[in-house]
Computed example of a mutant assay.
Amino acid sequence: MLRNRIRRVPVTVRGTHYIHEYLVLPDVCAVVAETPEGVILVEQFRPALGKRILELPAGRLRRGEEPVEGARRELREETGYQADQLRLLARFYPSVGLSRHKVHLYYTYNPKPGPTDWDPTEEIEVRIIPVQEIPRLLAEGRAADGKTHLGLVYFLNHRGWTMQKGRWRPAAQVQPPGGSH
């Protein structure tokens, strides 16, 4: 069970004193896992949103767990896939006004399939999304949580895709500045 705690700290800004509250949460790891067929995402119900959403395989780190090991564990537990090599893409704070926890974002290519190991509270559907469909997921807001959105943007950029005139384009379709459509 996650034991969220609210921390209260006194703050003074330009002579104004107040108490700022934030949540103490564990760090999180997430994995952009690419197979020859596409990127592995999980679809699950999120009670705070009241709906199912697509996300990168991810979860909170256990006490004392190294982020890369947490990423490897979460990928295996949620999808069944096992990664030998994981490369760090980024570390970021997803909501600095709410918490100081970090997301550790990793990438792996061609993980090996295996059995899942879901938590009793998880009901997950594993989906492999072809690379060409990822820009549409982003544009439609179907990959809307911060870690997933940012992870997929990193992935597309790594693969040579670029945002031009509000649309994602693969490297072969990128128009030079001032070029025609």
Rank of each mutant, 00 (worst) to 15 (best):
V42K: 07
E69N: 06
V31T: 15
H149Q: 10
A171P: 11
V96C: 02
I40M: 05
P57H: 06
V13T: 12
P177N: 09
R136W: 06
V28C: 07
E55H: 04
A30G: 09
L150V: 06
G70R: 00
I134G: 06
V9L: 11
M163K: 12
G179M: 09
E43G: 05
P176Q: 10
G141N: 05
D119I: 06
I128G: 00
R167M: 13
L54C: 08
V131I: 11
V174L: 14
A71Y: 00
R3H: 12
R8S: 15
L152H: 02
A171H: 14
E37S: 14
R127N: 04
R91M: 05
P176L: 08
T16Y: 13
E55R: 10
G166E: 11
Y109W: 09
P120E: 06
V174Y: 11
Y81S: 08
R60Y: 07
G15L: 09
G50W: 05
H181L: 12
T35L: 11
H17F: 10
Y22W: 09
H17I: 08
R127D: 04
Q164T: 11
A33N: 13
V32R: 00
P111S: 06
Y22E: 12
P135D: 02
G64S: 05
T162S: 13
R87W: 07
T35E: 09
W118S: 03
L41I: 11
N157I: 10
L150A: 09
V96A: 06
R72P: 00
L137Q: 05
A139N: 03
T148Q: 02
K165E: 12
G59Y: 02
E66V: 00
E74T: 12
A172L: 14
A90Q: 01
R167Q: 12
R167K: 13
P10H: 09
R142W: 05
P94C: 04
W118M: 02
W161V: 01
T79M: 06
R46A: 08
R52C: 07
R136F: 06
L75Q: 03
G141S: 03
I40V: 15
E78G: 03
R76Q: 15
V24Y: 02
W118K: 03
T162D: 13
H101W: 03
L152E: 01
E34S: 12
V11S: 10
D145Y: 06
V68H: 02
G59P: 04
A172V: 10
